[in-house]
């Protein structure tokens, strides 16, 4: 039977080594299956976070050959026969053990976002074309691969100033909701730090749900921030029209 060469990071809290494993390949196998094979047959202590195994829950985020992706979606037949497959935990968040990182920062960020605030007395007649944009953002499975790959968080470590692509998506979904009445643009500009994003689109590249994070969420938010803070002319006209 064909065998795959896996090189998996093993260790706790950053200190550790890459260890090599040979895993028999089955048809249709994904990297998560290979890790499970190791767990069941070689070393039951190897840690990997996973849940649905169908790319719906976003738990098994890791980096395979340096590319952030879901382990349950990384098919083994995409690799050359005999190719060494490096599997590492996601880099941007503190390491726990083996392939598991501590992503709790994201949950803290989520708490800061002003929640959905429906217009009082709205009749809830809402048309499909008005929510289609928002529905794209609601596809997010919170795998945090976008947070992991975003260089602002990953390399510059600006978790103090930037909420990251995941929460730009959430903010965009709230701001574009036809029934929402809160204004989060000051937050988008300041606390969420949309200006840190230089739209280099890695978040979009890694999104397993194919959300067009940059084009459909971040850039529209940037343009809304321009409306509010950088476009005095438009603002002037708007206030004139409103005054009438």
């Amino acid at each position: 039977m064909a065998e795959a060469n896996l090189k998996v990071f093993r260790g706790e809290k950053d200190s550790g080594t890459f260890e090599n494993y040979k895993v028999p390949i089955e048809e249709g196998m994904v990297v998560l299956d290979a890790i499970h094979y190791i767990q069941q047959n070689i070393d039951p202590t190897i840690a990997v976070r996973w849940n649905c195994k169908a790319a719906k829950c976003g738990s098994c985020s890791a980096e395979v050959n340096g590319r952030p992706q879901l382990l349950c979606k990384s098919r083994m037949d995409k690799f050359e026969p005999g190719e060494e497959i490096t599997v590492q935990p996601i880099k941007t968040f503190p390491h726990v053990k083996d392939l598991v990182s501590d992503v709790s920062w994201n949950y803290e960020v989520n708490k800061k976002i002003v929640p959905f605030t429906p217009k009082p007395g709205h009749n809830w007649v809402v048309y499909q074309e008005d929510i289609e944009r928002v529905q794209e953002f609601r596809k997010c499975i919170e795998c945090f691969l976008c947070q992991n790959v975003c260089h602002v968080l990953r390399d510059h470590d600006r978790k103090d100033g930037f909420y990251g692509p995941r929460f730009m998506v959430r903010l965009a979904g709230l701001e574009m909701h036809p029934v929402d009445s809160a204004n989060r643009l000051k937050m988008v500009k300041e606390d969420a730090g949309v200006g840190f994003c230089n739209i280099t689109k890695c978040c979009t590249e890694v999104c397993p749900e194919d959300i067009h994070i940059t084009d459909n969420a971040i850039i529209p938010l940037k343009e809304r921030v321009v409306d509010e803070f950088y476009d005095p002319i438009a603002k002037f006209f708007k206030s004139v029209f409103k005054a009438k």
Binding site: E12, Q39, P44, T45, I46, A47, V48, V96, K97, D98, V100
Partner: peptide, 11 residues
């Protein structure tokens, strides 16, 4: 099981 208690799925 063996190993430590840190994220030990076997345990």
């Amino acid at each position: 099981t063996k190993g430590s208690k840190t994220y030990n799925p076997g345990w």
